[in-house]
Design a binder for these strands. Structure first.
Length: 570
RNA sequence: CGGGGUGUAGCGCAGCCUGGUAGCGCAACUGCUUUGGGAGCAGUGGGUCGGGAGUUCGAAUCUCUCCACCCCGACCA
């Protein structure tokens, strides 16, 4: 492709509303333009990258035996009512009516549609297992779209769904998909990790998220230093401290702590560590009463863990100021378990504390020297409530945890029969009996992969595409071609030869200054660059430079194609 | 949804406090020069100052209202 035929819509200035590198660079490099909050136009250069991702995804899904389908963006409400999600889904589900007043939604995902498709098309166990996939636009009316393409409202997703007669069959396909995902992200040249994920309220046996590691990632992931264990921190289990509880060796004392509300204030005021303070959180229960959650002061509540506990409201809701006043008889900041006559759930670490500080259920007062079993009853319910922190023991018993940030680009999980049961998707088995199919689902955020790749691969000059994602593999830059007929001939000849050798080449035939070409090509991230100049031609040489290099290499012109073949990961 | 902020040329911004009919840089276009790291000079075009209402002789500027966009929050009592 020639730049004269393929305009590069690059901009020199950083857009004021872009926060993270990928968002800034996608706009500066002319990949996308914002249309409205969370909605983007894709320009020609961006579309080439999208197509690269899509074709790799398509190949690997086909290799995994999945069949491509295409389902509508607009979906009838009836199907969502069948699954129960018309009610469950909040305002994130964009709903609309047609001219006859019939209700529809814009698909945020396609479980209902695929289940409807499968129950009509799949009748016999002989047709199982079967996997379908599509690459399609989704719409989710996010509370707060941000970071450009990373969290937009409309985005492209590859979603696959599998149907099975047995759980064993589901597991087999799940494993195959796991492998396909590993292949896809490896081929895309990304530094990624599969991590154990929360299955959500759906249940099911297994779920993995695939994360691209990047500091700007929205998710925190816990890794073991001693094994392959990796889990989303939402899911990572915090084990009870292995050391036994210290003996009670201080007396219970009530102290005045005027206006010291936060754990930090208290620990500084009483000159103890935050780990010596007990944090008491009041949350709503299912039946609208209040439950106390106890945590060590230096730990944070993991809401996902908390809301899974029987009786605790889901989604987790903190008690109102009024509730606090009524149950603890004081303001937030001075609550404690002593004399608190409600259900109390203690975190594993909190239950191992001794000689600690807690609120006295009286404004501006705290207790010090508190001990379980002596000053208050031993907790009757001890649970894993907290977020894991760096240095915690790995739940699999090998090594300790470190925490890194990741961008979720893929998610696979075993759905079981949630949709097939609700929507009566069944087949006849060998005995002619109806059996509900069991399902798996597997997603990849195609557009998000691109943003994630940029987060992971960029420098001050611009994007650095992995070979597999690059819109063009090679930038062919003639220096002042319009002034030298000889140079023009050599460039045109090489351009043709490179194409014949199977490379995607961007030939910069614009009449612009060299520095302008260099900057543009670096900004849009073309991984390999060939520069043709009159001086080099005198010696039969061209210059080669990878986007990641800091120096040029002089290569004899007749060897350049071979040189590229050995340097490019096709 | 709560809090904060911003809307002025395609992009980035100044002007607003203290009202007097709109400006800078980049980009675009023309010409000349220049040509190995986002060129120089000269010139040209482009703006319902987010929308509406109000105050005023006069509003980008003051008041009200609506809208859009951005940031923070919606777990640490």
């Amino acid at each position: 492709m020639r730049t004269s035929q393929f305009p590069l819509n690059t901009v020199k200035e950083t857009p004021s509303d872009a926060e993270i590198a990928s968002h800034q660079l996608m706009i500066r490099a002319g990949l996308v333009r914002k249309l409205a909050a969370g909605l983007y136009n894709w320009l020609p250069l961006g579309v080439r990258i999208l197509q690269k991702v899509e074709s790799i995804v398509r190949e690997e899904m086909n290799n995994a035996g999945a069949l491509e389908v295409l389902m509508p963006v607009v979906q009838p409400a009836e199907l969502w009512e069948e699954s129960g999600r018309w009610e469950q889904y909040g305002p994130e589900l964009a709903r609309l009516k047609d001219r006859h007043g019939r209700e529809f939604c814009l698909g945020p995902t396609h479980e209902e549609i695929i289940t409807e498709l499968a129950r009509n098309e799949v009748k016999s166990y002989k047709q199982l297992p079967v996997s379908y996939y599509q690459i399609q636009t989704k719409f989710r009316d996010e509370i707060r779209p941000r970071f450009g393409i990373m969290r937009s409202r409309e985005f492209i997703m590859k979603d696959a769904y599998s149907f099975h007669l047995t759980d064993e069959s589901l597991q087999e396909t799940y494993d195959r998909m796991f492998q396909a995902y590993t292949n896809i992200f490896s081929r895309l040249g990304l530094n990624f990790r599969p991590v154990i994920a929360d299955t959500g309220s759906i249940g099911g046996n297994a779920s993995h998220e695939f994360h691209v590691l990047a500091d700007s990632g929205e998710d925190a992931i816990a890794f073991s230093t001693g094994s392959d264990y990796a889990a989303n921190v939402e899911k990572a289990e915090a084990l009870a401290p292995s050391a036994p509880r210290t003996d009670a060796n201080t007396n219970l004392t009530k102290v005045s702590t005027p206006n010291k509300r936060s754990i930090e204030d208290i620990s500084a005021f009483l000159n103890v560590t935050t780990a010596d303070c007990l944090k008491t959180l009041l949350v709503k229960s299912d039946d609208d009463t209040v439950v106390a959650l106890l945590l060590r002061g230096d730990h944070e509540l993991n809401e996902i863990k908390a809301e899974k506990i029987e009786g605790v409201s889901s989604p987790l809701t903190m008690a109102s100021d009024e509730d606090i006043k009524n149950t603890a008889n004081c303001n937030a900041g001075f609550i404690g378990p002593i004399g608190l006559d409600i259900r109390i759930i203690a975190d594993r670490s909190a239950a191992k504390m001794a000689n600690f500080v807690c609120g006295a259920n009286e404004n501006d007062m705290h207790y010090t020297g508190v001990n379980w079993g002596r000053d208050l009853a031993e907790s009757t319910q001890i649970e894993d409530l907290r977020q894991v922190v760096e240095g915690d023991a790995s739940p699999d018993g090998n090594g300790t945890l470190t925490i890194a940030r990741g961008i979720e680009v893929g998610h696979i999980f075993q759905l079981g029969t949630k949709y097939s049961e609700a929507m009566k998707a069944s087949v006849l088995d060998e005995n002619g009996k109806n059996q509900t199919m069991t399902m798996g689902c597997y997603g990849i955020g195609v557009t998000r992969v691109i943003a994630a790749a940029i987060e992971q691969n960029h420098d001050a000059k611009g994007i650095i595409w992995p070979d597999a994602l690059a819109p063009f593999q090679i930038a062919l830059l003639p220096m002042n071609m319009h002034k030298s007929e000889r140079l023009k001939d050599a460039a045109e000849k090489l351009y043709i030869e490179l194409q014949e050798a199977g490379f995607d080449v961007l030939f910069d035939d614009r009449k612009v200054r060299p520095g302008f070409m260099f900057s543009d090509m670096e900004l849009i991230g073309i991984p390999h660059r060939i520069v043709l100049g009159d001086k080099g031609l005198d010696n039969g040489m061209v210059e080669y430079r990878a986007r990641t290099d800091s120096d040029n290499q002089d290569i004899p012109i007749e060897q350049i194609i071979q040189h590229l073949k050995t340097n490019i990961n096709q």
